[in-house]
Each structure stands twice: as structure tokens, then as C-alpha cells.
């Protein structure tokens, strides 16, 4: 875990993907919120902008639109940082929400020629729920998830189960299974894709 005094020279170190940088990112976002701290914003920008661009390229397959997404997302982060509250979740989850919302509105504009900017009504920025869940084992949803899980290959099943049902973090699971973080992510992605396909078949 970083001490606050270490934040200043964090940029000298080569980022280590296995290091938990979340507390640091939360601090930067809070500094933007309270003081409009440009140095903290630059840190957020360096971390998030390339990833938002990569996400935008996947969504729109066009460089210019991907750059629009970076511009709008980071501009909203700058202007709306005061709406972020660390008790409700991580900075990266909040920024993901902004990016996902803007991207949803852009896709609607491209696909249906609608500029209604629905996203803020669908996913309010100031109220992403606390991930405290009362687990109710016989709940229908859980039963359906478990049913879907049975059809996955064992390694994907193990990962989806640990992340969604046992609520482990990616990092904890990587350590637990003694495999690289990237392996966890790719198994999770494959598993979720299969579950999604099942849903699509179900809805046909």
C-alpha cells in the first residue's frame, strides 16, 4: 500500500501491474474534487486516457470517435469530480461509469440517430450502489447463474464463480490459484462471453 508521501515520486517507478494502485487513484480523484489539483488530474489522465481510447476503439472502430470518448470522459471527470464519493466505490469504477455512459449515448447516436442522452437516467453518476449484498442463496438469479456456470469449462467456471459468487478480487484469485493476473482476466472474459451467448440463445 502507498503512503501519501510516496505519491509524489510514484511516476518515477515503472508501474507494476500487480501493485494495487486503487488507493492512489482515489486520492488523485479526491484532490481534483477538493482543489481542482491539476497535477493529480495529470496522473489520472496518464493512467486512464490510453485505456479509455482502447475501449473506444473496440466500441466504435474509429480513431476520431475513440478520441472523442477520451475527451468527453476526462472532461466530465474534471468537472464532476465532486460527485465522486469514496464510500460508494473505487475511483476507477466511477470513471468506468462515466465512460460507459458516454459511450452508450454515442452508440445510440450512431446506430439510431437519437441524441437523447439517456444514460444519466439509466445509470445515475452520484448513486452507484454500494456493493454490499445480502446474499440470499436460494435466490432465483443466483440459481440461474449457477445453472449457467455448469456448462462452462472447469477453469472458466472456477474464475467466474470466485469473482461473482465468492466476491474475490482478481488479484486475490490470481494469488489463490497461483496464476498470472492476465490468465484470470482472459478466463473471466471467455466465461462471461459464453454466459452471454446462452442468454442470447435464450432470448431468440
Amino acid at each position: 500500500m502507498y503512503q501519501t508521501s510516496q505519491l509524489a515520486d510514484a511516476n518515477i517507478k515503472k508501474p507494476d501491474p500487480n501493485l494495487d494502485i486503487q488507493p492512489e487513484l482515489n486520492q488523485y480523484l479526491l484532490a481534483v474534487a477538493s482543489d481542482q489539483d491539476k497535477a493529480a488530474f495529470a496522473k489520472l489522465f496518464a493512467f486512464f486516457a490510453p485505456k479509455i481510447k482502447a475501449f473506444g476503439l473496440k466500441q466504435f472502430r474509429q480513431e476520431a470517435l475513440a478520441m472523442d470518448l477520451v475527451q468527453e470522459t476526462m472532461s466530465l471527470v474534471w468537472r464532476k469530480a465532486q460527485l465522486y464519493s469514496p464510500e460508494k466505490g473505487k475511483a476507477s469504477t466511477w470513471i468506468f461509469t462515466i465512460m460507459r455512459n458516454y459511450s452508450f449515448d454515442m452508440l445510440r447516436k450512431i446506430q439510431h440517430n437519437k441524441e437523447d442522452n439517456l444514460s444519466d437516467d439509466l445509470w445515475p453518476l452520484y448513486e452507484e450502489a454500494e456493493p454490499e449484498s445480502d446474499h440470499d442463496d436460494d435466490h432465483l438469479m443466483r440459481a440461474q447463474l449457477i445453472q449457467g456456470l455448469e456448462t462452462l469449462p472447469p477453469k472458466q467456471k472456477e474464475v467466474v464463480e470466485a469473482i461473482y459468487l465468492k466476491e474475490m478480487t482478481h488479484q486475490e484469485l490470481a494469488e489463490h490459484l497461483k496464476v498470472p493476473l492476465g490468465t484470470i482476466k482472459s478466463r473471466l472474459r471467455l466465461g462471461l462471453e459464453k454466459l452471454k451467448e446462452q442468454m442470447e440463445q435464450h432470448n431468440d
Partner: peptide
């Protein structure tokens, strides 16, 4: 509230996946 909590968890997992 139950589904809302599940959605919050999933959003966090997606954010981790995109931004890690």
C-alpha cells in the same frame, strides 16, 4: 436492492477488467 447490489459488483468487475 438485491439486483442493484449484483449490478454494482458487476460494474466494479468490468471496471477492473477494462482499466487493469
Amino acid at each position: 436492492p438485491h439486483c442493484k447490489a449484483i449490478a454494482a459488483k458487476m460494474t466494479q468487475a468490468l471496471a477492473d477488467e477494462e482499466f487493469n
